[in-house]
């Protein structure tokens, strides 16, 4: 009896140590993960004088914090134009991508036509095609269409990155809806679009949100396509605009640069903070579902 109690206590102690160790290593990793955004935030509040001086601990704000970089960014640079362009491109990309992929996923998950199984596999394969494989031919194609140096070029090419993944996970979500539900709707005399809007879309809403977040992130964060296809400040989007135009000559305006990068990165991070579960389910669905 005494032995038993002792071993139980021993086990509990072991478990507590395991927990403390787990927290310790988690904190180490999280510091590694969060250090860059933290350092960007700290730098964006420093005065230029403090940034350029090599004295003092760089990890914290030593002098009075300032909002100068943010004000300067919004007033004296094209940052707001970039922001507006990114918002326009993202709205169109998300709308186009979701329309295409919901229609296709509805068809591929429930109906059959010649070659539909092959097309489903093909969608998955195109999801694995990286943007870096195709930007050079796309550069030529957009040139022929006269769309180079236009944000509409991005609206045209971004869906190629979003649609395959969105369709793929929507096939999974639609496929998991019980067939009894659409049979009931059919007997009620629902037409295909009524079935889609009244049954499939409401039931698969979590999947639609996950796919929308994905399409949003893709078009907000893409860097290669605007870098290759867009040149002028009027048509530029945030990612490239922040990286290229805020760097003037060889004097780096680190404070402004960090403020710009943080503001540009904020919308995806905010959306993620509110919709984390959908985000994660979308992330795992790509490989785990189906």
């Amino acid at each position: 009896m005494i032995r038993k109690a002792f071993s139980f206590k021993h086990m509990q102690q072991n478990r507590r140590w395991a927990l403390i160790l787990a927290y310790f290593f988690l904190i180490v990793f999280i510091i590694f993960f969060l250090f860059p955004p933290y350092y960007m935030l700290v730098t964006s509040f420093k005065t230029n004088q403090e940034i350029s001086s090599v004295k003092g601990i760089p990890w914290i704000i030593n002098q009075a914090p300032t909002l100068f970089h943010y004000k300067n960014l919004l007033i004296n640079t094209h940052f707001l134009t970039f922001f507006k362009n990114t918002v326009i491109v993202t709205i169109f990309t998300v709308a186009i991508s979701m329309t295409i992929s919901i229609l296709a996923a509805y068809s591929l998950s429930r109906m059959r036509f010649f070659g539909s199984a092959l097309l489903a596999t093909g969608v998955f394969l195109t999801y694995l095609v990286p943007e870096t494989l195709l930007f050079i031919p796309l550069f030529k194609v957009l040139g022929k269409l006269g769309l180079l140096n236009s944000k509409w070029a991005l609206v045209l090419v971004y869906p190629t990155l979003a649609v395959p993944f969105c369709t793929w996970i929507m096939i999974g979500y639609f496929g998991s809806i019980p067939k009894a539900l659409d049979e009931a709707a059919l007997i009620d005399g629902a037409r295909w679009y009524q079935m889609l809007f009244r049954v499939f879309i409401p039931v698969a809403m979590p999947g639609i949100i996950a796919a929308t977040i994905f399409a949003f992130t893709i078009s907000w964060a893409n860097f290669l396509y605007p870098l290759a296809f867009v040149y002028s400040n009027e048509e530029m989007v945030l990612t490239v605009g922040t990286v290229t135009t805020l760097i003037r000559g060889d004097v780096y305006h680190w404070g402004g640069l960090m403020a710009g990068a943080l503001l540009a990165a904020a919308p995806p991070v905010i959306i993620y903070a509110f919709l984390m579960d959908y985000y994660i389910s979308g992330l795992t669905a790509g490989a785990v579902k189906n």
């Binding site: 993960f33 969060l34 860059p36 955004p37 350092y39 960007m40 992130t217 907000w220 964060a221 860097f223 990612t239 490239v240 922040t242 990286v243 640069l257 960090m258 990068a261 943080l262 540009a264 990165a265 995806p268 991070v269 993620y272 984390m276 985000y279 994660i280």
Partner: peptide, 14 residues
């Protein structure tokens, strides 16, 4: 998950 959520071009600036 924050590193994965930030657009990589921008976090690389940091």
């Amino acid at each position: 998950l924050i590193p994965w959520v930030m657009p990589p071009a921008l976090s690389t600036l940091g």
